[in-house]
Amino acid sequence: MRFILISFLIFVVHNSLALDQVNTKLNNYAKACPEKTSRDLKSLVNYLSKGGNTQTQQVELFCYWIAENISYDTESYVSGKTTETAKILVSRKGVCQNYAELLQKMCESVQIECHIVSGYSKGYGYSKKKPFQSPDHAWNIVKVDGKYLFVDATWSCGYVDQVKGSLMFFKELKIEEIFADPNYFLMTHLPGDPRWQIRNNPITMTSFTSNDSVKDMLKLTLPNYNYLDSLKTYLAADSLDRRVMSAISTYNFNPINANLTEVGDAYYNKAWKTSQNTNDIKNYETAIIWYDKSIMIFSKLNNTYGAKWISNSKKGLKYCTYQIDILKKDKK
């Protein structure tokens, strides 16, 4: 019991900036953004960021503007079609990935560290009787004023529900999703990569799906580790290695087929990009290693997707071998 209580207290004090009410002044400032200004990301961010005195206020302003102006795209959700985030300022609608990418772009425009987190959510369509087949939601973690904070820009805008057989979006500012209290947030959001739980004793997938309260979830956690050290290693890596690290961590945390597929994709992506626009034999040799790894993973899928990318990986191997032979001949 003492261990559980200590873990619970550590979890509670992590986030002391959870909002409990709308900042009317900031919200009104965001709403007053001129229409023309809001059609261009640079001018939009420039306007909004001037309304805040701190990084925290700037992110809050970004969230208020998104909640007021971007609607959830129920048609894309139902059809499974992807929407380009670059077009969201024109279409004024998107799905969770678009919301997360937009907030990230806004934050990074003013040098605020912001990460997109893919994971599992107890939102629309969730059922304890229906296991997750893949991560189903995306949100953000921002680092403002030295603290890592949770933000779900999608859920902060409102909610969806069935009306006469059709999925409808209802706009409603939900302040609790901006700098969300970890206890509240973890009840409904579980990062695919456990490092983004931002805690030293990550809650397990089983605990998340079996319980509805954080107190009960904390009874079953992964072994203790230093999440700050884990994040430091992750952030020091380049984008290719970050994707590989996250994919492996996500699969180890929840070894389902969709997560294994992402491992294969991450390996292939690293191989392909390492072999592009280079005259360095070492780069081609490195790419060969990653192509071999991708083939090993895709072979485990036993499906048409895996077969397709095994074929592409073999083509990549052939290309790299050919380039190495040419470069070796040129050196003679």
Results as ranks from 00 to 15, higher is better:
residue 109 S to M: 08
residue 282 K to N: 08
residue 286 T to Y: 07
residue 132 F to D: 01
residue 26 L to D: 08
residue 135 P to S: 15
residue 324 I to D: 09
residue 329 K to E: 15
residue 130 K to N: 12
residue 139 W to P: 15
residue 128 K to S: 13
residue 114 C to K: 02
residue 220 L to N: 15
residue 59 V to H: 11
residue 174 K to Y: 00
residue 158 G to C: 10
residue 169 F to D: 06
residue 4 I to Y: 04
residue 143 K to L: 02
residue 288 I to F: 06
residue 219 K to Y: 10
residue 20 D to Y: 02
residue 240 L to V: 00
residue 298 F to S: 10
residue 171 K to C: 03
residue 60 E to F: 02
residue 154 T to R: 07
residue 94 G to F: 05
residue 210 S to M: 03
residue 264 G to L: 03
residue 234 Y to L: 15
residue 208 F to N: 12
residue 3 F to Q: 06
residue 288 I to L: 15
residue 187 M to I: 14
residue 55 Q to T: 10
residue 304 T to Y: 02
residue 66 I to Q: 08
residue 251 Y to T: 03
residue 185 F to V: 09
residue 128 K to C: 04
residue 225 Y to E: 14
residue 179 F to G: 11
residue 332 K to T: 13
residue 62 F to A: 11
residue 229 D to S: 14
residue 280 D to K: 14
residue 172 E to Y: 01
residue 193 D to A: 12
residue 266 A to C: 12
residue 306 G to K: 11
residue 293 K to I: 02
residue 73 D to P: 04
residue 24 T to Q: 15
residue 254 N to P: 00
residue 168 M to L: 03
residue 209 T to F: 03
residue 229 D to I: 03
residue 281 I to M: 10
residue 154 T to K: 04
residue 260 L to H: 05
residue 238 D to W: 02
residue 196 W to R: 05
residue 287 A to T: 07
residue 285 E to V: 03
residue 183 N to H: 06
residue 140 N to P: 13
residue 51 G to S: 08
residue 264 G to K: 00
residue 143 K to R: 14
residue 182 P to L: 11
residue 228 L to F: 03
residue 114 C to Y: 09
residue 180 A to D: 10
residue 206 T to S: 14
residue 2 R to S: 13
residue 88 I to S: 06
residue 90 V to K: 14
residue 113 E to G: 01
residue 313 S to K: 02
residue 254 N to E: 01
residue 257 N to Q: 13
residue 224 N to I: 10
residue 229 D to E: 12
residue 328 K to Y: 01
residue 312 N to D: 14
residue 120 Y to P: 00
residue 14 H to A: 12
residue 331 K to H: 09
residue 66 I to N: 07
residue 15 N to I: 05
residue 283 N to F: 04
residue 270 K to W: 02
residue 23 N to H: 09
residue 122 K to R: 03
residue 174 K to M: 09
residue 109 S to N: 05
residue 62 F to W: 03
residue 24 T to F: 00
residue 301 L to K: 05
residue 148 Y to M: 03
residue 94 G to V: 10
residue 167 L to N: 06
residue 175 I to C: 08
residue 108 E to T: 09
residue 193 D to V: 09
residue 259 N to P: 01
residue 72 Y to D: 07
residue 97 Q to A: 13
residue 48 L to V: 13
residue 299 S to C: 07
residue 104 Q to G: 04
residue 221 T to W: 11
residue 276 Q to C: 11
residue 7 S to F: 00
residue 90 V to D: 08
residue 77 Y to M: 06
residue 272 W to I: 13
residue 17 L to M: 12
residue 288 I to D: 05
residue 112 I to H: 06
residue 151 V to I: 14
residue 269 N to W: 11
residue 136 D to V: 06
residue 217 M to C: 06
residue 126 Y to W: 14
residue 177 E to I: 00
residue 49 S to I: 00
residue 127 S to R: 11
residue 74 T to C: 15
residue 243 R to W: 00
residue 26 L to G: 08
residue 300 K to Q: 15
residue 218 L to A: 07
residue 138 A to E: 11
residue 23 N to P: 02
residue 231 L to R: 04
residue 28 N to C: 03
residue 316 G to P: 07
residue 306 G to D: 02
residue 177 E to Q: 13
residue 55 Q to I: 04
residue 44 L to K: 10
